[in-house]
Design a protein around this nucleic acid. Structure first.
Lengths: 316, 316
DNA sequence: TTTTCGGTTGAGCTATTGCTCATTGATTGG
DNA sequence: CCAATCAATGAGCAATAGCTCAACCGAAAA
């Protein structure tokens, strides 16, 4: 008898769900049809959902992305996560994630109350600032997390901070420092001098950090861009480095290394664990271990990536 | 560019739909996530539905029934239609439809304002009245559409009107007449006498008619119950009879025959087309042509049947 | 350059929905 | 048989969704 009632209740729930979601009736109409009160009709619709009698299927590539983003967000307790459809024609294309990063920057910068945005390295970050909608926000501040002078003394490093400031009229604070100093002592001296200390102080108050994630292998961007030598790169790899964020190398568990180039690095170190919104932006199979490690080590609390990369991270 | 925007709009619609239906967020939350106004978020969710980006799938046997009922209702412009799951163990079982008929009667009889319910023949109708919830409605009226005296003069015909009256305290009007008279003249005389004319008048004002549908073949219920002889049945079949409602035989197009037993029949004739709620209740492969004809001829404007029968009717 | 037009937007209103809580009614144990 | 308990119910309210309308924006035409 109990089973009988149970069954008939589920039947009614299914009926209500059908009438609600498929036929598009209101719960009031359904209540009249099924000869129950509106409250009961609502309960039946809820039950239909709770018992998973009805399922939703989104026939769109976006669906998989949303799913992956939700899983990443859950798994790594992220404050923010976006997964864009992978472009099969260009698996490494940063266009998709750059657009989302730009959108995120737009949203942050739209605020009338002053905000501080800190930028790291990475092609996605560079591409993102190019896509930011121009807006006049002179009271905002844009601060760099990394030195903008490369090994040869030139300031050739792509000036993301300056570009973003151009588009917003915000004050900007590049870090007038070489990426690496020649020794730990020298680094410690430099970061204590007034203009650098000021940048550090502003960066510490940043409302959002947007950083790229680099893998530490033969194709490491920090090496390609000439910030670290081949020897330095290989030394870090020997020491266990698997990825880097603003130059700070970390191992497979996302722990910052205490040796090697990290001792001579002028970049603002990541918060561990990340408390302020710290969004990592990266795509590509090569970066998967680096991204996964950064997530495990809580070096970032936000991620913008593509479908293929997201899937690879979750499958590890 | 237009295509680009169109695509991105659909992407957003899919995103909104996912967040709404799958993740269960409110449109307000979605608006904040996608950086649009709540109104726009609502539009995106609507668009997602309109473009069929999202589909609902009801994983329950009831779903097919709802679907069939909706199609029957649409196809034959029915005021009411219910399809119950077919019981694979007993394909002819009237239990399912009787329960629904009883429910319908319950709903009708629940009204405080006086209603008139007219009952026809059929096992489903008989079973239905047995399942009606007892309720005290002395001002209602229950009227029979068919004579309750069979060929041998006995009143053995199952007394649905009386049983329903028992359960409701309603006044009831059986038709104290033989099912068939010996001639057309005699029929015409009988239906004009006072008590019969009164029953006819009440039946004409009925708020609802619940009737069975009989097939006209060797297993015709009217013959089995002894209301028509074998010869009479075969004559009607020769004349094109394919089904009967309250004894009134009709052809494959649902047109009432003007000859044969119909000329001697005392039953209240159906309205053509049915204006008052006239619900046919019948199941079984054998009844499919009869039901389909009744629907086509608008002898009924409501149907209660089972899944297998509904499917067969639609596939004709 | 100005005008017009189609389409998009957000404010604000109304309908619908979800939920809480007191009440009812059924069921089980005494 | 009665009382206690618990799930189900419906009223009523607060939150949410859907819709209308006026305003706005950008594109195409004059």
């Amino acid at each position: 008898m109990a089973a009988e009632n149970e069954k008939s209740r589920l039947d009614d729930a299914a009926r209500a769900g059908w009438l609600y979601f498929i036929a598009g009736h209101t719960q009031d109409e359904i209540a009249k049809m099924l000869q129950v009160s509106r409250a009961s009709a609502q309960r039946l619709v809820s039950l239909c959902l709770a018992e998973r009698l009805i399922t939703f299927r989104l026939e769109h590539p976006i669906a998989a992305c949303m799913e992956l983003a939700a899983r990443l967000k859950e798994r790594f307790a992220l404050a923010h996560c976006e997964v864009v459809p992978a472009d099969p024609a260009a698996p490494q294309a940063t266009a998709g994630i750059a657009e989302r990063c730009a959108n995120l920057l737009d949203a942050t910068l739209r605020s009338e109350t002053p905000v501080i945005v800190a930028l790291g390295t990475g092609r996605a970050v560079r591409a993102a600032v190019e896509r930011v909608t121009p807006i006049d926000r002179p009271n905002h501040q844009i601060v760099s997390l990394v030195g903008n002078i490369s090994a040869d003394g030139s300031a050739s490093f792509y000036d993301t901070v300056g570009r973003l400031a151009d588009r917003t009229g915000a004050r900007h604070y590049p870090m007038p420092l070489p990426f690496l100093m020649s020794s730990e002592d020298e680094r410690n001296k430099m970061v204590r001098i007034e203009p650098i200390a000021k940048v550090k102080a502003i960066a510490a108050k940043a409302d959002m950090r947007l950083v790229g994630i680099g893998q530490m292998d033969q194709k490491a961007q920090v090496h390609i861009d000439g910030f670290v030598t081949r020897d330095e790169l290989f030394e870090m790899m020997r020491l266990g480095a698997i990825g880097e964020i603003t130059g700070w190398a970390y191992d497979a568990k996302g722990r910052l290394l205490k040796t090697g180039t990290n001792k001579r690095l002028t970049s603002i170190p990541p918060e561990v664990p990340a408390r302020t919104t710290t969004i990592g932006a990266a795509v590509g199979a090569a970066k998967v271990p680096a991204i996964a490690a950064a997530l495990h080590g809580r070096l970032i609390n936000g991620l913008i990536t593509d479908e293929a990369t997201a899937r690879a991270i979750l499958e590890r």
